[in-house]
Design a protein around this nucleic acid. Sequence first.
DNA 1: CTGTTAGCGCTTTCAT
DNA 2: ATGAAAGCGCTAACAG
Lengths: 360, 360
Amino acid sequence: MEQKIRIKDIARLAGVSAGTVDRVLHNRGNVSPAARRAVEAVFEQVDYRPNIHLSGISLRRRYKIVAAIPEFSQGEYWECIRRGIGRAVEVYESLRIDCRFVFYDQFDLYSCREAFGRIAALSPDGVIIGPTFRDETVGLAARLDELGIPYVYVDSVIDGTSPLTAFAADPHTCGYLTGKLIDSITPPDAEFVLFQAVRVGRASANTTILRKQGLMDYLTEHGLANNLHRVPFSVMHPERNDELIGDFFERHPCVKGAVVLSSRSSVIAAYMDKHRIEGVKLVGVDLTENNCREIRRGYIDFVLGQRPEQQGYLAVKAMIHHLLYGDSAKACNVMPLDIVTRENLDLYSEFSEVAYSDAK
Amino acid sequence: MEQKIRIKDIARLAGVSAGTVDRVLHNRGNVSPAARRAVEAVFEQVDYRPNIHLSGISLRRRYKIVAAIPEFSQGEYWECIRRGIGRAVEVYESLRIDCRFVFYDQFDLYSCREAFGRIAALSPDGVIIGPTFRDETVGLAARLDELGIPYVYVDSVIDGTSPLTAFAADPHTCGYLTGKLIDSITPPDAEFVLFQAVRVGRASANTTILRKQGLMDYLTEHGLANNLHRVPFSVMHPERNDELIGDFFERHPCVKGAVVLSSRSSVIAAYMDKHRIEGVKLVGVDLTENNCREIRRGYIDFVLGQRPEQQGYLAVKAMIHHLLYGDSAKACNVMPLDIVTRENLDLYSEFSEVAYSDAK
DNA sequence: CTGTTAGCGCTTTCAT
DNA sequence: ATGAAAGCGCTAACAG
């Protein structure tokens, strides 16, 4: 039980005062090369880790974090990310973090452009970005780089930018695992269908493309690539699905498995319910409220969860550690992909209550 | 952005000093009924939540926690629980928690009795118990109840005792989910085999019995109860399995799925490897190092993880909050059951690094 | 019984 | 450039 080392100990060992140690620690200047060397020598020797909650208490300045993420309705994916961000702000309460949200419409490029445009004027110390549109995000990243403002991605990563770090599931693995699951739970000779949400006015989201690549890679590796059908469906206008999907399942009785790589598998579940499609397994992504309901009703068999709440929590945590101590973090943290089915679903939803939050 | 309320604010609102508020808060006595009422009235109004890390800093006394859990080798289940306990102690570093481990041999009742007997003499403020033997644990619990020492279970719960709280997966759900998985990944007419570890000198662990019940319930509900074979195997003497399992698979070609409800499915995987058993799916429990290896090699198809590290972490956290603030907690916290397969395995193991720990 | 005060580890201001 | 000192929210000893 060796005593925890404190700043005062460092000071004593380096033969300087605590003030000087702190100045070195936070790169606050006004320290002679000699003193700096002495202090740094001690840091080499000992494993000093300041208590961030105590740092917070005596901090004069407040940090302002802006979280730029898609707006959401109750029970949707981004609500979890937002909740995670909120929890982190509570846990690090002693730092009195100012967290401001900037929401945009993930289906409207102009809304995103406008929202991202507002960020710089808020002069944040750090930004959490939930990206959707590549070009807009690259633009925002460039502006932040210029201003020296660090940013962290949640949910997905935009190549060609230099975030402090990112918390996201690997979309290729997600698609690959989807393939593994649908293959595992259907007979060897089954055919599959990939339902693809039709998007108005823009290409499919990058994440979806990468997931699809993962799915294709699985199928190809297992000699199943030719067993896959693709059918479009509409999220915005579910009533159009009667027409879009039509009599697909009657025409393809060998199709025993369906996959949706966006979070909207509940739309397909509703279609299957309405048209009494039976004997077709359905695998989706994300534990949205709608998806959970369809899992309970037995229309969705498996869903992959990406721990959105934890993504938000960890993003803020990483940002705070960077702001206070200049900690760098590894470029990208890959979240686990939780396989959720009717039997373990409740364990996941009940649980998020207790898992985080150090505050009571 | 409403200001966080501090003890000083409570004092002002109640018309008393901070010292009195603190006395009320910690039931330290020496406070008049009138003052107590005034302070409690304010607590009704406002949501005051002390910052536990700041509480810690000015705490004079140290708390001593004893963790009584099975001893383990590297890569085993209980190592993760121990790591989680260690992490919590780090995160709550400002409280200078004294954590002492008392290990016992989970296969030796006398070792457990002896170890549990030593605990009271350590005069701990709280005890984390990883139970194995029912009677010994009931005895320990009774002694602790008598001494007024709170205790928390990890991994499993012993009925008829009154722990502060517990963190464990639900064994019935675990078995049930195992059934669901093996059923999902085998053909409709498949038969199954349950491999049961032979225990020397004592009945099967209670957890295993409950898991088995869950499995049976799944099979019964799905009209598959008659498709299940039971075969004993040995963990201690794997070489005996050639004889114990013998030509089971040749005699039962319809068996397409195997289940192991202890953490030792890797032993069966090794058997299958050695005897070139093919076309039989295997589902197990716990992400031990051995199990992970066999998942990677493709001999185990699915494993259920119970987040042992998080169990340990949360147990200590709950205990600390209780010791400091008298927080009660709900009787039992049910951990998620993570479904792990080759494709998402690495995400789970890589991840535990970053998920906990507030300390850098 | 109660208010005042010192002190925990850390940051920051203020003299030097 | 540097050390001393004050102060953050909280607890506990102390003096009344």
